[in-house]
Amino acid sequence: MSFMKVDFLPKFSVSGVWQRWRESYPVEGTKAEHAITLFTGVPTIYTRLIQGYQAMDPQLQAASAAAARNLRLMMCGSSALPQPVMQEWEAITGHRLLERYGMTEFVMAISNPLKGERKAGTVGKPFPGVQVKILADEESGSNVNKVGELCVKSPSLFKEYWKLPEVTRESFIDDGFFKTGDAVTMDEDGYYIILGRTNADIMKVGGYKLSALEIESVLLENPAVSECCVLGLPDKTYGEVVCAIIVAEAETKKKREEESKPAITLEELTSWAKDRLAPYKIPTRLFLWDSLPRNAMGKVNKKELKKLLAPEQ
């Protein structure tokens, strides 16, 4: 019989996590008695770990990367993982993060394979016994390339919200599928792509439905961008306009401040993005912040940010 031990940290610590891995595998080919073998985190955690790694001296980087490569599996969930983060993490540690999708209401439902192709930008395919459908404005026989709300029916699906009968009724459709509140699409290989929360990450700009997560993933490829948040702000002409809140990369910010310039301007961002995004997806408003407000799970509350920024329009 085998047993699993879980390490609980008092709070997330970038240096603490890297140190725990180095303690687990102190020398190439060796393994401590209580070595960490599996790690799971949200995208923000991996972003912070990458930043911590980049701040290390070369010797510590080598030891940290070697230790991380010895873990059996690394997973990512809670929100969509930007492809640049996945690619950089794989370059550092050799691990292609295993993305999967679940909620408290039904635990895990969709996952990339443990053995097989883990497609960047997707959360994979439904588990055996799990049924999913996409609830869209225009119904069609196939989920391929259809955009709409993900609905799930699973053996592990909960029955009801405690003492909230009205909320429970609103959360299910007639055939027993649970409405997740997440907008998705499915590619030709049957892999599902999370586009974001229907009430926060889907923007309606001039007749187009845009995914804020898709735009964020592209902006993160810009070397001047460390973190970013994209959201739609109210606009009388277009309904909403694309707004980007950017946390600049530290060295870029320092260098530009010495030149009395902002880390990146809207004009520079527009010029850089024109070959990477369709014109209607390029942000038309830009805010430079020192950090993004996040909750305990590492998520940005976009609804609150919209309330904060809307009066400025």
Rank of each mutant, 00 (worst) to 15 (best):
M4H: 09
M4A: 09
M4L: 11
M4N: 12
M4Y: 06
K5A: 05
K5T: 02
K5F: 06
K5W: 07
V6D: 11
V6H: 10
D7V: 02
D7K: 00
D7H: 02
F8Q: 15
F8W: 12
F8S: 14
L9P: 05
L9Y: 09
L9R: 08
P10N: 07
P10V: 02
K11C: 09
K11G: 12
K11A: 14
F12D: 08
F12N: 08
S13N: 07
S13C: 01
S13Y: 06
S15T: 09
S15V: 05
S15K: 06
G16L: 05
G16P: 08
G16H: 08
V17C: 10
V17S: 13
W18G: 05
Q19D: 06
Q19R: 03
R20I: 04
R20C: 07
W21I: 07
W21L: 10
R22W: 12
R22M: 11
E23L: 06
E23K: 02
E23P: 02
S24V: 00
S24R: 09
Y25W: 14
Y25L: 09
P26F: 05
P26G: 10
V27Q: 12
V27M: 03
V27S: 11
V27H: 09
V27A: 10
E28H: 13
G29F: 11
G29L: 01
G29V: 05
T30I: 00
T30Y: 00
T30H: 01
T30P: 00
T30S: 04
K31M: 04
K31G: 03
A32C: 10
E33W: 05
E33R: 06
H34D: 08
H34Q: 06
A35S: 05
I36L: 13
I36H: 09
L38T: 02
F39D: 06
F39G: 02
F39Q: 05
T40S: 15
G41D: 02
V42T: 12
V42C: 12
P43L: 02
P43H: 07
T44F: 10
T44P: 02
T44C: 04
T44I: 03
I45D: 10
I45A: 11
Y46H: 04
Y46N: 07
Y46V: 02
T47S: 08
R48N: 14
R48A: 14
R48F: 15
R48C: 10
R48D: 15
L49R: 11
L49K: 12
I50M: 15
Q51P: 10
Q51E: 15
G52E: 10
Y53M: 06
Y53Q: 09
Y53T: 05
Y53A: 11
Y53K: 07
Q54I: 08
Q54W: 13
Q54H: 14
A55R: 13
A55N: 09
A55F: 12
M56D: 13
M56T: 03
D57T: 06
D57A: 14
